[in-house]
Computed example of a mutant assay.
Amino acid sequence: MDIVDCILADHARQRFYFAALDEAREDPETLGKVFTRLKNFLEAHAEAEELYFYPTLLKKGEGAVDSDSAEETTDDAIDDHNKISEAAEAAMKEKPGSDAWWKCVDKCNYHNSEHLSEEERQGLTDFRRRVPLKERVRLGLQYLAFEAEHSGEFEREEKDPDTYIEENS
């Protein structure tokens, strides 16, 4: 599986989970379970990207569409991952279905939606243009294996974007 296709499939699943939360608005128990699953999925997804996608993008990318460089794309992505994680963690401290919980969930959805559109437009485009298919498939299999291993509870460590870029360039 091409890592680009794996990431796009994950993005569809993330959108699905956020939509499911809206559908379950009147059921706090379901909200809590679905959001816990979504939070763990978001964390594992971000970590998998940071292990297998962004290091290669930093080495081979040049920037695409409205991004001037792979470094700019990566900096934005790591910062986005941190914001998504912070909003998800805040939601976990609130009662599912409460106004405070929805405020945190909506913030998480906002940051995630922004991230998905930027990543799809910039990083994934740059990756398809610059990384050969054989390498994308190899990375995709590693990415899937990581997500499979971490499909339960997972918590990603927040990263400093500048340090991450320095360590992975």
Rank of each mutant, 00 (worst) to 15 (best):
L51G: 01
W102N: 01
R25G: 12
F146V: 00
D2M: 03
L116M: 15
E120R: 01
L8P: 00
P55H: 04
H11F: 07
R136H: 02
G61Q: 08
E153A: 14
L133H: 09
D68G: 09
H150F: 06
V4M: 09
V4Y: 02
D27L: 06
R13S: 08
D66P: 02
F53T: 00
L57F: 05
A44H: 07
P96D: 08
L58W: 11
L58N: 04
A100G: 04
A87G: 00
K103M: 08
R25I: 00
K33D: 15
S85F: 01
F53Q: 01
E86C: 04
F18C: 06
A91Y: 02
D80C: 02
T56I: 13
R138C: 00
I165M: 04
V65M: 07
K33M: 15
G32T: 08
P55M: 05
Y164C: 05
A20L: 13
E29Q: 15
Y52S: 01
T56Q: 05
L58E: 03
A48K: 05
T30Y: 05
L31H: 03
D106K: 12
D76H: 14
S67M: 09
G32Q: 10
R129F: 08
R130I: 10
D75M: 08
Q122V: 11
L57M: 05
E120P: 02
I84F: 06
W101F: 11
